[in-house]
């Protein structure tokens, strides 16, 4: 088991190095923060001076060497725009994103899993098709559009909820629903297919032969087994939410790391962009590693492969 964990850690480290390298060079291909910081009438001297002040004047390989040297010591640079250590900026905003995620996942599971069970139990029926429609809508509906729609209905027209920004419990409702809509669809689909598979198992037939009630068979024996792939998906979804909250955070003016990433891209804030992507990658790798280790404990075959 220790060898398995060590191997996964090594793989994670290599992946991280690759991500850092790609982000460093690709980020610079998309433009230069100096272009966005200088006015239209800036002279070449103004440009040269600002480039030097920002430390962007040396050859790109030298800049990369400096970046790697500092990154090894945990210094991912200082945000060009905010003049704040990039790591600090990331961790300042991370909690704002993390407070949304559990609620979104909880809502996604609370709605998605029962819907999946119902759809599996009524395979091919109207209920199954209705649940399938919900799933397709949840996946296909752009969260951007959904967010604006929710604001229009619940804030502007009904006046029940605030339009956006972090605040009390009421402020969480619309962003959480927006994030959870995609999750409901995901959890519903995976629960449905897992339930259909489990319901065909021998042990389920045995449970029925033993005379257990249908409710116990379904909700205790079938669902418990069907939840294993659902839990795997949970890990994937957390990763998706960490990286994919950009749109929701932008629509609802939520100051999380999604927005921070967006701002880093728009302003060509290279150090911040590098830090955000590297730290997000570490976060996602850690979550995936945690899920894999959990799996390896549950299923020894995984350790071998």
């Amino acid at each position: 088991m220790k060898r398995y964990i060590a191997r996964r850690l090594m793989q994670g480290a290599v992946l991280l190095c690759m991500v850092a390298t790609i982000v460093f060079f690709l980020g610079r291909l998309t433009g230069n923060p100096v272009d966005l910081m200088l006015p239209e009438d800036a002279t070449p001297e103004d440009r040269a001076a600002l480039t030097q002040t920002l430390g962007l004047d040396g050859p790109i390989l030298d800049q990369f060497a400096i970046f790697v040297g500092k990154a090894i010591h945990g210094d991912l640079g200082t945000s060009i725009r905010m003049k704040q250590p990039a790591v600090e900026a990331f961790f300042d905003r991370l909690p704002n994103t993390l407070v949304l995620i559990p609620w979104a996942i909880l809502l996604g599971m609370l709605l998605g899993i029962p819907l999946g069970v119902v759809a599996a139990l009524h395979r091919g029926s109207f209920l199954d098709r209705a649940a399938g429609t919900v799933a397709v809508l949840g996946i296909a509906m752009p969260s951007f559009w959904l967010g604006i729609l929710l604001i229009f209905v619940f804030s502007v027209e009904l006046g029940w909820l605030p339009s956006g920004r972090m605040g009390g419990p009421a402020h969480y409702v619309l962003p959480v629903i927006t994030l959870a809509t995609f999750l409901v669809a995901g959890f519903m689909r995976i629960t449905r297919s897992a339930m259909l598979e489990v319901m065909e198992s021998e042990f389920v037939k045995l449970a029925r032969i033993k005379g257990l009630s249908e409710a116990v068979v379904i909700w205790k024996h079938c669902l418990r087994n069907a939840l294993i792939p659902v839990l795997t998906l949970w890990g994937v979804f957390v990763g998706n939410l960490i990286t994919g909250a950009i749109v929701t955070e932008t629509v609802f003016a939520w100051p999380g790391i999604g927005r921070l990433t967006y701002e880093a891209v728009i302003y060509r804030d290279f150090p911040l962009l590098q830090a955000v992507i590297i730290l997000k990658s570490i976060l996602i790798l850690s979550i995936n590693l945690g899920v894999d280790i959990l799996y390896a404990y549950v299923d020894p075959r995984i350790r071998v492969t």
Binding site: V156, P162, R165, A253
Partner: peptide
């Protein structure tokens, strides 16, 4: 001064009085 990047949200906030 609120930072609200999305224009629709800004307009909604003015409409609701936020």
């Amino acid at each position: 001064m609120l930072l609200v990047p999305e224009e629709s949200t800004r307009v909604a906030m003015v409409r609701t009085g936020e």
